[in-house]
Structures are given as C-alpha cells and as structure tokens.
C-alpha cells in the first residue's frame, strides 16, 4: 500500500482530518526547504505538498507567484525537487510527498524519465495544475503503472459529468478547489463546498480534501468538517515571504515560523 493510502487509512482510524501544507521548493533559498519540510511534519502535517517553481504559474495568486519567483532566482528546478524528496526520505520514510506544479517542466524532462526519477526519489503523488483529464491520459497511464498517484482538481465550475470523469481518473485523493479564483483568494463559500464535496463523495471512494482560500485554523476546520482534509498554501508561503523580505538566511528560523502556523491549524483541526 502506498504512503497516501496508508496515511488516510490511519487518519480514518483515528477519526482525524488531513492537514496538507504547501511550500515552494527553494523558497527563498535551496537550503531552507528540507528543514521546513521536517518542521511541517513535526508540527502536525500529514502530507507535504511541494510546489515545483515555474516561470508562468498562471493559477497562483500574488503570494505564491512571488514564492515561485524567489525560487527561480536561485535556480531551483524540478531536478532539485526530486533530489530534495530523496534527501527528505533519508530520515522520513512515512510522510507522503506530493509534487504540485505545471506541465512544462515535466514535459521537458520527459514523462518517462520523470516517472522513473520520481519513484526513485520517493515521491508519492503528482498534481499538475494545467493538465486536466482530457490532456492527461498518457501521463496518467505512466504514473499509474509506476504506482504514483495522480491528484486531480475539481472546481466549483466542474459539472457533474466532469466530476465523474475526474473521479474515474484520479488517484490518492480528490483536491476540491473551494473557490473560483487563484490560490490565496479570500471568498470561501462553505455551502458550495458542502454541496460539491457531498456529490464527489457519491462518485468515489477516494478521500476529498479542500484547498484554496484557507486562511486560518477556523477556516481549515470549517472545510475539514465537510471533507477529509484541508490544504493550506498561501498562509504558510506568506510567512516565508515575510522572513525572506527581512533578509533572513537561517533555515532554522523558517522552520520555526512555519511550525507555529501548522501547530495552530493542527490544534484547530483536532479540537
């Protein structure tokens, strides 16, 4: 059984919800991300969503866009992401890692080569924002064959027919996008989340997690009550941005700062 299935299985047994933080690899420096990942796990993260920097992150709001820019300015790439996961696995063999990014860096590396390296590095799942089901067939097949989970998004604008199509292709868990907008936007509509998550659950056995627009412990708890977990990105990345703007260079300071946020969210989810 892969790490994602195991993790959701044990969460279910404990009656807990998944907390999935997102950070961009190499933000703001290459040596920061590994200690940050371990700190996220120690403070209560269940799955790490590792953002792969891209020059044109068109689904991201300003906070995460700037994180991509900071990471690119030190040359961070998909290769570094794979190397980082390998390093992470040296001391953590249980926490699932999901690579989230855009299609072109993977396309450039080549699907086959990427899949091979991802397996070798200990990656568990992939979410490619701009590869919707109709363009993902070939990639999806290769991922499945290798035992990697392909995480798909379902949006408030997805018709029931599309929800079904996505549910049929998806692995790992379904990522429900809580709002019409970019990452970090602020108009969460819980009624719509409830209605859509309920419908998605009727289509699949996969867990459903909710992301985009989750600002704090309260909103994380609110969406987690309706689903199997919450994805938090911009809040964590914003904390990193504040330190980066001050010119902070010590990775331990970054690790401590993100720990505080995740610990709070964990508390809110478990209470």
């Amino acid at each position: 059984m892969n790490r994602i299935k195991q993790r959701f299985e044990s969460l279910r047994q404990q009656g807990r919800k998944a907390l999935i933080p997102y950070v961009v690899l190499g933000d703001p420096a290459k040596d920061v991300t590994l200690p940050v990942m371990h700190a996220l796990v120690e403070s209560g993260a269940d799955i790490i969503e590792l953002g792969v920097p891209f020059s044109d992150p068109s689904a991201e709001g300003p906070v995460i866009q700037k994180a991509h820019e900071r990471a690119l300015s030190n040359g961070s790439s998909l290769r570094d992401a794979l190397a980082l996961v390998k390093q992470f696995r040296e001391t953590d063999s249980v926490t699932p890692v999901l690579l989230m990014g855009y299609a072109n860096p993977i396309e450039r590396m080549g699907y086959e080569s990427f899949v091979e390296k991802a397996i070798e590095s200990g990656v568990d799942a992939v979410l490619t924002v701009d590869l919707p089901p109709e363009e993902a067939e070939e990639f999806n097949e290769q991922l499945k064959e290798a035992g990697l989970e392909n995480i798909f998004l379902i949006a408030p604008t997805s018709t029931h027919e599309r929800q079904k199509m996505v549910a049929n292709m998806a692995g790992g868990f379904i990522y429900y996008v809580s709002l019409k907008g970019v990452t970090g936007a602020g108009h969460l509509d819980l009624d719509s989340v409830r209605a859509n998550v309920t419908h998605i659950r009727s289509l699949t056995e996969l867990p459903v997690c909710v992301g985009f627009g989750i600002k704090d412990g309260a909103s994380a708890r609110a969406v987690a009550e309706l689903s199997d977990g919450a994805v938090v990105g911009s809040v964590v990345v914003n904390q990193i941005a504040e330190l980066a703007e001050k010119g902070e260079a010590d990775p331990a300071i970054y690790a401590k700062a993100v720990s505080a946020i995740i610990a709070d969210m964990r508390k809110a989810l478990d209470s």
């Binding site: 689904a59 919707p132 109709e134 599309r162 996505v166």
Partner: peptide, 12 residues
C-alpha cells in the same frame, strides 16, 4: 494545441 488549463476554466 489542446486545452492545458486548470479545471476551473474548463466549463467556461
């Protein structure tokens, strides 16, 4: 060609 966009835009 094709349609390489995030899910939210597909319906539009």
């Amino acid at each position: 060609g094709g349609r390489f966009v995030s899910e939210t835009l597909i319906s539009a």
